[in-house]
Simulated assay, not measured.
Amino acid sequence: MFVAPGSCQGPVVVLGGADADRVRERGLRPGDALVVLDNSGWAWSTVLEHVEDGVCRARVTERWLAPERRTQVSVYQGLLHPSDFRRLLSAATGLGVVAFVPVIADGSIIPAAGGVGDDDAAAWERMARDAAEAAGRGRAPSVSGPMFLDHALDQAARNSTVLFVDGAGSPIATVLADRPFSVDVFLPPPSGFSADERARAVARGVHVVAAPRAGPDPVARAAAVLQTVYDGLEAPAADAP
């Protein structure tokens, strides 16, 4: 369970506020085991000693580094239907994605209310946190507010290898041959990126790559792209014995 930074110090973990509420919501009692994480990458195995409204205390029995992938992969997703974006958060977090940025593109599905509110963003963060807990990860991915495509491309191109997923492009594996440490993947909205958007991406020097076949479901397509990215990053080097 992810807890507030600073909760895991010394031999005793003290949880308050929302963290204590989550312990009680899970029906945990003194004597129960609980793995806690503070989003630093470390995990603490604990045994609960005190559980009540507003505060819980647990004794630390072990500490270890929770698993995380070597390469940091961030997803810039053309806005989907809210239910599809929620499914994407869960699936991609389980694969190891470290950050999500919803992108407003020409073919994006914009909520009928006209935007994404603070409640939506907070709910997305909770979903990503819960998915990271279920996957046994040491860090929960970040979820940013929506960003226009050109701004997102400019931001990503500063520090990462950028993959722009389009119908016609290079195989993903060829772009990742040098095993970059940071990869930003631009995934299209359901109708795809427009020709003008593709041209603007190419003008910024990003890599246009082809998506693997995965059927009509946008979340399945996104997951297939991300799995191909991780497969390319983790495949044995060509000159390995």
Rank of each mutant, 00 (worst) to 15 (best):
D130Y: 03
R126H: 11
V162F: 04
F164P: 03
V3A: 04
V97T: 09
D150S: 08
R179I: 03
D53F: 06
S40V: 09
R24V: 09
R57S: 13
A235S: 13
S40G: 15
A134C: 12
G78T: 00
T228H: 08
T61D: 11
A177S: 15
P212H: 02
A4E: 15
L163N: 02
A238H: 06
V12C: 02
V202S: 08
S74L: 03
A113R: 15
G16I: 00
A92T: 07
A210V: 08
D239P: 01
G169Y: 05
A203H: 05
R200G: 01
V3F: 02
D21F: 08
A203G: 09
D217E: 03
V175A: 10
D166N: 11
S142Y: 00
D32Q: 05
V23K: 08
A140E: 09
A211Q: 12
A235Y: 00
A122N: 09
M127I: 15
R158N: 05
A152I: 02
D130H: 14
E62V: 00
G31A: 02
L233K: 09
P189C: 06
G54H: 07
P141M: 04
Q77H: 07
G107I: 01
G169P: 07
V165D: 03
V23C: 03
A131K: 08
V165K: 03
G94N: 12
A122Q: 12
R158L: 12
W124D: 05
H207P: 01
L48Y: 02
A203D: 14
V175D: 01
V36Q: 05
D150T: 01
E197L: 03
T61I: 10
A122Y: 03
G205F: 10
F193H: 04
F181K: 13
V116Y: 06
T71L: 02
